[in-house]
């Protein structure tokens, strides 16, 4: 039932990321979503995709968003 838990984690973190007032928290929750998806790819027998997704989805994309937030503003007014 690991895939069910992971699916719920993905959807919950996606919804939470979109209702945060603090954009930095939203960036971190995006990373959660990407990381859970990487594990899901491993369950789906695709280890190569899981590696790429772990790097891109859990590290690079949140860092990009966090950098953009740092250069602009942190609060969602």
């Amino acid at each position: 039932m690991l895939e069910l838990v992971l699916g719920i984690v993905i959807i919950l973190s996606a919804i939470l990321a979109l209702i945060q007032k603090d954009l930095l928290k939203a960036a971190i929750l995006t990373g959660f979503c990407g990381g859970a998806m990487a594990v899901l790819f491993q369950i789906l027998l695709a280890p190569d995709v899981a590696l790429t997704q772990a790097i891109v989805g859990a590290a690079i994309v949140p860092v990009f968003i966090a950098l953009a937030v740092k250069k602009t503003q942190r609060e969602d007014s």
Partner: peptide
């Protein structure tokens, strides 16, 4: 706009 872009990345995923 930043949340909009995060949402768009979810479509892609």
């Amino acid at each position: 706009i930043i949340k909009k872009i995060i949402g768009i990345s979810f479509i892609e995923e």
